[in-house]
Computed example of a mutant assay.
Amino acid sequence: MIEQFIDSLPEKVRCTDSFENGTKHRKKDKALSFPYIEHNQLYKKYIAIDIDTPGSAFLWEKHGLPPPTFIVVNPKNSHCHYLWQLRTPVIYTEGGRRKPQQFYENVDCSLTRSLPGADPAYVGKFIKNPLSAFWKTIRHNAEYDLEDFQEYIDTTPIRKRQNLVWDALGRNNTLFNNLRFWAYPTVKKYLNNHAGFISAVEEQAFEINSQFISRSDKGSLLHKEVLSTATSVSSYTWRNRYGDFRRKGIMQLPEDMPQKQKESLGACYTNKVRSQTVKEKIVQAVAELKAQGTPVTQTSVSIRAEISLPTIKRNWNELAQQFNLYA
């Protein structure tokens, strides 16, 4: 099992001895000496669960679950990571199929629900390295097909409905704003899987739209309107996926940095944030115009977004390529 674990890792592995010190890609042989490593996110060979409960090494047995291949125990507080090895990895590259991915995600969620103390927010990227002497590792000679877990848990997906923030301007704005704020953190889970992200955004868009039936006198939006908004959000979010959507307007600078340097960096950061906000307004305006069947022109976007025409013109080439406005 150890050999298979090592083989499942890429040639360069992101690792760290403490998350306060940040993470770094290192060659596999060196990375395996670190306490925390990122297991392969493109070919998922393991289902990883984080148990934040003391004395949880045998919690799986108490709740009638199959034995994890690795139980990696923190000797200081006896919290654990459970790792179940799969016979066949689930592919999350561009060519990966969504159905196996959804099955994997359903099993992951069901295992988490079945274990008291399991962290539902844990995304399974960084794991306690079972080869590190920093931890105590319990091993079982066990590997599984995803179908095997159906003997132990209910893998039926539970659809968690998003609590919508309603926009006074109507359903289109409500869909757009709720979808984009959902997409910003979600895109970080998809790495190079563009097609998987597009599919997830569309699924979430139609889930939000389904709530309009009971929450709006006008009912749900047309299929084309929803799809147009999903396309706009997924396109914009994917192109900006390496940005930090959650910390706009926040800048952490060293206290001993000279004041003039702080002011200069602050001004640059403020301009960057302002520019990002303007682009979001423009993208929203284009999405709404396309959804309503209104011709998308520089003038119509300027009026809809309430942004000056010269600003629209500066961003027009980028917009035209993003939304295929030349077609």
Rank of each mutant, 00 (worst) to 15 (best):
N177L: 04
T311L: 13
C15V: 07
E306G: 14
Y92E: 09
E225V: 03
T294N: 13
R239C: 07
Q321I: 08
S275L: 12
S232V: 13
E280Y: 01
E202P: 00
Y92A: 11
A48D: 01
L83G: 02
N77E: 14
P66G: 13
V90M: 07
T93F: 04
W84P: 03
K99I: 11
P258T: 10
Q204P: 01
N178G: 01
Q252M: 14
K45V: 05
P310L: 11
K160R: 13
G124R: 02
S300F: 09
I208C: 02
D108L: 13
D244S: 14
E255V: 13
A142H: 06
E318P: 00
D29C: 08
A327G: 10
Y236Q: 08
V283T: 10
N163L: 09
A133R: 11
L169D: 12
Y236R: 05
L169K: 09
P75Q: 14
N177Y: 06
N317D: 10
T156G: 04
S264H: 12
L86S: 08
F181I: 00
E288T: 04
E306R: 15
L325W: 09
L131H: 02
A121S: 15
G196Y: 00
P258C: 09
K24L: 11
N324L: 08
G170W: 04
A168K: 01
K313I: 04
V296E: 03
A205C: 01
G95H: 12
G55I: 14
A267F: 14
H194Q: 14
Q85M: 15
G22R: 10
P89I: 05
E202D: 11
S308R: 15
G170F: 03
I91E: 14
Q41N: 11
Y92G: 03
Y184A: 06
